[in-house]
């Protein structure tokens, strides 16, 4: 799949933003006033920035509101509904925390649930696609949810759970890579089933329909980034999970150094997740590539 920057930025930032909103919603940390304002500004900045970025790849962004209508059948529509719901509910909760020094607990829990639901529905947009075996696995929602919770815990400064969530997210990432590498083979789809000619002999793409490229090849057959996949996996894993874990587990003296270390952990995690998300797209093989003798 073509790793469109808009979609990578969207899933990385909004995943982190909704992760933070989840922790704020359940009262971790239970901040008020100016501190709360900073926390909510970061959370909404990430979540809304990501959502805005996702509209950049639309052919007609001005019609985006229509995407809220088909929640009965479409995961993309459900994501839109959950995102708008989460932002409104958490917006009200934030008003209480910032300006009225009060935590409306029930509202917070509803907002937290909607925030996680947003991340889950985002993951289901990819998971539902049988055409991309590497995404069509139970581990895909696990990747999105565990990354979002780990990033949210890091940003929220939830020291007790952050190391555990990071470790879980790292393990999920490794499992996703291991299983994903075999997904296309085990799916049973190949040029033989694609053409229906497989039982007659070995099928080979002899001549493509056009001498030039086309939308399908640009969108679904991206092989440039796969060359360095193993190196990028090392970078993604180290920056995303190992370094943040070391930074938050290192015992330090003084509040300033602690905050610097925490900020570095967040930035490192963000860079690692972006690299992982880039691979999520670049390594995904769409079965339409088979028709072109590619994958």
């Amino acid at each position: 799949m073509h790793p469109a920057p808009s979609v990578i930025i969207f899933t990385t930032l909004s995943g982190l933003g909704f992760g933070l909103l989840f922790f704020l919603g359940i009262g971790q940390p239970a901040v008020t006033g100016t501190v709360a304002f900073v926390f909510y500004a970061i959370a909404f900045g990430l979540a809304c920035g990501g959502l805005l970025a996702s509209t950049f790849h639309l052919g007609h962004p001005e019609r985006a509101w229509r995407a809220l209508t088909q929640w009965k059948s479409s995961w993309l529509s459900r994501e839109g509904v959950c995102a708008v719901g989460a932002l409104i509910v958490m917006g009200l909760y934030a008003l209480g925390a910032v300006f009225m020094d009060s935590h409306w607990t029930l509202l917070g829990w509803i907002g937290a649930a909607l925030s996680l639901a947003t991340v889950f529905t985002t993951s289901m947009i990819y998971t539902q696609l049988k055409t991309i075996p590497r995404w069509n696995m139970e581990l895909t929602p696990a990747v999105f949810l565990s990354f979002s919770l780990a990033g949210g815990a890091l940003l929220a400064g939830a020291e007790a759970v952050a190391p555990w969530l990071l470790a879980i997210a790292g393990a999920v990432q490794l499992a996703y890579w291991a299983k994903g590498d075999k997904a296309l083979e085990t799916s049973g789809t190949n040029l033989g089933t694609a053409t229906g000619l497989g039982d007659r002999g070995a099928v080979r793409a002899f001549e493509p329909p056009h001498t030039g490229s086309n939308y399908l090849l640009r969108e679904f057959v991206h092989v440039v980034g796969r060359k360095h996949a193993q190196k990028l996996r090392m970078i993604a894993f180290t920056l995303g999970f190992v370094l943040p874990l070391l930074l938050i587990l290192t015992p330090v003296q003084g509040l300033v150094i602690k905050h610097v270390f925490a900020a570095l952990a967040v930035l490192s995690h963000l860079a690692g997740i972006a690299a992982s998300r880039w691979l999520f797209f670049a390594q995904a093989e769409h079965v339409v590539g088979l028709y072109y003798g590619k994958r």
């Binding site: 799949m1 790849h57 639309l58 052919g59 007609h60 962004p61 019609r63 985006a64 229509r66 995407a67 993309l76 947009i125 539902q128 696609l129 049988k130 055409t131 991309i132 789809t189 694609a194 086309n214 939308y215 399908l216 969108e219 679904f220 769409h286 079965v287 339409v288 028709y291």
Partner: peptide, 19 residues
């Protein structure tokens, strides 16, 4: 009504849809 998100083309195994 189409917003040009491309998801239908992603879901089609046959490459039948082009933006």
């Amino acid at each position: 009504h189409c917003i040009g998100c491309g998801l239908c083309a992603w879901s089609c195994p046959y490459g039948a849809r082009e933006l």
